[in-house]
Design a protein around this nucleic acid. Sequence first.
DNA 1: TTATATTTGTACTGATTGGTAAATAAATAA
DNA 2: TTATTTATTTACCAATCAGTACAAATATAA
Lengths: 215, 215
Amino acid sequence: MSAVAKSQKSVKIPTKPRGRPLEFNQDEALDKALHVFWSHGYEGASMAELTEALGINKPSIYAAFGNKEALFRKALAKYIAGPAAFVGTAMNEPTAHQAVETLLMQAVDFFSDESTPNGCMIVQGALTCGQSSLAIQQELIAYRGNFEDTLTKRFELAKVQGELAAKVNTKQLAKYIATVHQGMSVQATSGATREELIAIVVMALKSWPTTQQIA
Amino acid sequence: MSAVAKSQKSVKIPTKPRGRPLEFNQDEALDKALHVFWSHGYEGASMAELTEALGINKPSIYAAFGNKEALFRKALAKYIAGPAAFVGTAMNEPTAHQAVETLLMQAVDFFSDESTPNGCMIVQGALTCGQSSLAIQQELIAYRGNFEDTLTKRFELAKVQGELAAKVNTKQLAKYIATVHQGMSVQATSGATREELIAIVVMALKSWPTTQQIA
DNA sequence: TTATATTTGTACTGATTGGTAAATAAATAA
DNA sequence: TTATTTATTTACCAATCAGTACAAATATAA
């Protein structure tokens, strides 16, 4: 293919597609699927419930998203890029301490937001499951690992910048923050209020390593 | 019934039961069921898997324990009275701080014990689920609430004994400890090692309220 | 018009879910 | 022996699971 033809093809020509048009908005449907998976988990969400929530028939779901597993993965990607995107942006705070504080405080609002399911989809999506869901379970474990890696990197940066002492074990600190975050997710699904979650964050941040640290 | 007759009846006369004897040990079978529920959760454990693990046929299970829900509840009771009993005994430590430290350090050994599933059954038994398991989900939430109440009472005692300052919010402190505990359970099922869990406990205990507390 | 492409709704598939009916086996009581 | 009681085995139940075959519907292209 010539460079000209290639550039021409890359130009978005709004040619109408050939067959019968989709009667639903894929993005909105995925949002509804996300909501169902988020609140009931991968196994707890049945295709029957999903079809009803999406308002479209099963063959349309399978044509648009593949199978249940693929639908979950696409919903999860939307979750990470959308409502859970604050996790990444919080890392841009000027200090590691502020990054963690922002992260956890935004997590509080996120977990207690009544317009969405309470808790984190990556934590409760498939914490335990049957044999048929092991792949999804492992994927979520990997995502939680990525979360810790993100924190670790931010703490390493803080070391270079002199905010954290060289002796601080950044991986351990990251694991501790992740643990509090995951515990808060459990608390949120169990009915903890915004105020209760805030108090947890305040308590958790008291163990932040400082030069004045006693022990 | 006369008092004599009553006392006679209360004496354990080892009369052999009438029909065909049980061919399995109920207690051992319940232990195996506990193991399956503990590792796969309530929904993730199928009756097919349970029958295979217990080594007895389904009608025998139903005759001995009722239905799946009843079997889960009996396994849960065995879990609480058995492997998870350290939670209650840890409260008997001389100070609240020692009680929490003992609790969390024993939880580390408990969660990382390779002879049992990793993590806490009360946390991961039914964190999310379908409509048919809502009753179990709510029961586990209630058990987690009891856990916090136990901690709160211990902290109230510590206040009376002068260990904790009067201004300490015992409920918040209990919720924080419970949150760390639940987060550690998530970490354990995700593959965290004993050493990693210990480091989390050390970090978490740094926020313990003391008179020297800075903020 | 006719042909082609794509989506939709209905109705279905085989496998698995929790749960059980009924016959057989193994014990005690009479 | 015979009757009675209880447990085990086999084979099954209806409901639900994820997933699909197929024909009708709806669009563009020729």
